[in-house]
Design a binder for these strands. Sequence first.
RNA 1: GGUGGGUUGGCCGAGAGGCGAGGCAACGGACUGCAAAUCCGUGUACACGGGUUCAAAUCCCGUACCCACCUCCA
Length: 483
Amino acid sequence: MTLRLHDTATRDVRDFVPLEAGKAGIYVCGLTVQSEPHVGHVRSAVNFDVLRRWLTVSGYDVRFIRNVTDIDDKILAKGEAQGRPWFEIAYRMGRELDKALDAINVLPPTYEPAATGHIPEILELIAQLVARGHAYPAEDGSGDVYFDVRSWPAYGELTRQKVDDMEPEETVADPLVMARKRDPRDFALWKGWKKALEPETAAWPSPYGPGRPGWHIECSAMAAKYLGPAFDIHGGGVDLRFPHHENELAQSRAAGQQFAAYWLHNAWITTAGEKMSKSLGNSLLIPNVLERVRGIELRYYMVSAHYRSHVEFSFEALDEAAKSFRRIESFLDRVPPVVEEVAQRPSRNRLPGAFIAAMDDDLGTPAAIAVIHDTVREGNRILGAGESADAVAASVRAMLDVLGLDPADPAWGSSEAAADGKLSAAVDALVAGLLEERERARADKDWARADAIRDRIAGAGIAVEDTPDGPKWTLAASVEEGS
RNA sequence: GGUGGGUUGGCCGAGAGGCGAGGCAACGGACUGCAAAUCCGUGUACACGGGUUCAAAUCCCGUACCCACCUCCA
C-alpha cells in the first residue's frame, strides 16, 4: 500500500506519486507575522509537520519550504500604531512563532524564506507575466501592477469557481482602486508606494516605480526558487484556497510553470463556533495554553483529530486529550528506559501494519492513535503477566515519533528537563522519608496512620501508588480549573 | 448569488454499504489492607423524512439546522 492524499484540486483521495522518485517537495504557506501565535495558527504547522515526518519515515528525501510573510498592510499598520518600524514587529512576531512551534515539536522547515528577501525573484516573475500579457501596470500612476484575470481562462480551476459567479465586488471596492483594474477581480502583484502613508523602508525600486510585493506573488516566486517550476505538494489552511492559492496557481501557470501536483488544506480550529480572530483575547495564545497543558499534550490534542476535520477547541477536550496521552506515557514509564542510541527515525517496516495503513490513508492520525492505544493495552497486559514489554514499548515509541509525540525525544525541552530533574531529586529526598514512615505503619497494619501520611503527601500535589516494587510517587496529574 | 464542508453514544473523536476505531467519563469484576495504576467486562450512537439494497451511519432524493470561502486570515 502506498500513501494516498486528498487533493483539493481534484477533490479526491489518490495515490501520492512524486515527480521524482524518492523525493518530495512541499511548500506550505506560513504565517503573516503580525500578531502572537494562537492555537489556530499552529494547527496548520502541526498537520504539515506530521505529513513531512510521515514522508520522511516512508523513505522520501523531503524538501520542506514554509514561508513567512513579513510585510503586508497589517504589519505596516501595526508598526504605525505602535510607533515602531514595521520590520521590528515582523521580526519579533516571527520569533514568537518560532518559540511556539518549538514548544510543540514542529521541526524547522528545510528553509524558511521571507517575502522581503525575494524582491528580485518577485519582480522577475511579474516581468514574465507582463511580457506574456497576463499582467499590466495600472495607468493611473499609482505604481500598482495587476494580474489580468480575464487573460487566463483557467482562473478559478482550483476552487471551481467561475469569475462571473463571484460575489459582486461593488460592496467592498474602493472606486479609485477599481478604476485601475481591467476587471474587478484582478489582484495586485505589485503595490505602488503610497508616500503619504507608508514608510520609505517599505518600498523597493522596480520598473513600475517604488513599491512592495502583493501578497500572492511571493509564494509563487519563492516556491519556484526553492522547489522549481513543478513540485509535489502545496499546503495551507482552507481559507487560503481562495483567493490566495487560486491566485498563486494562476500566476505560476500563466508564467509557464506547472506548479503544485497536489493541494492539501487543513481545516480550522475554532472556539465558540467562531474562528479564532485576533480579537478573541489572550487565553488561546500558545504561551497561555501551555500554562495549562504541556506542549506534547497540546500537540497530541491536535493530532488526535484528522487534519481535514474541523475542530471545536475547548479546554475540556484539551484536558481529556492530555489524560489520554498520559495513559500512553505511564505505560512507557513502566518499562525500563530504552538505552539505545538517539533513536533514529524509525523506518516504515518497524511499525505495525495497522499504523502504516492508517497513516497512508490520507494521514489518518486518529486511527493511528487508536493503534497506539491498542498497543499500549497489550503492553500493559504483558507487564501484568510479569513478562518483558520492551519490544512493545519500542513499537509505541516508534509510532509516537512519527507523530512527533515521543516523550523521550530530546526536542521536548532539555533545559527544562534538567531543571525538572534537580527538582524531582530534591522532592524525592523529602518524600522518601515520609514513604518509609508509611511503610513502617503499613507493616504494623496501622492503616489509619499510613493513609494519613499518604493524604499529607497528596496534599502537596503528589500521588502515591503502591507497586510490587514498593511505593512510587508522581506529581498528581491534576488539571487546573478554569481557563 | 456562487463554491465547499458539517450534524455520530454523557463528552471528544474515527469510519464511509455487512463485522460496535480509540480516548475521556460512568458502572460492574479481578488485583489492593484501602486506594491508585493496570487488566477483564458493560453502550444496540449515527439530525429528520422518504427511497435503493438481502443488508444503509455509510448510496440516492428531500427537509432542517450549523459552518467556511468569495475582503486580511492557518
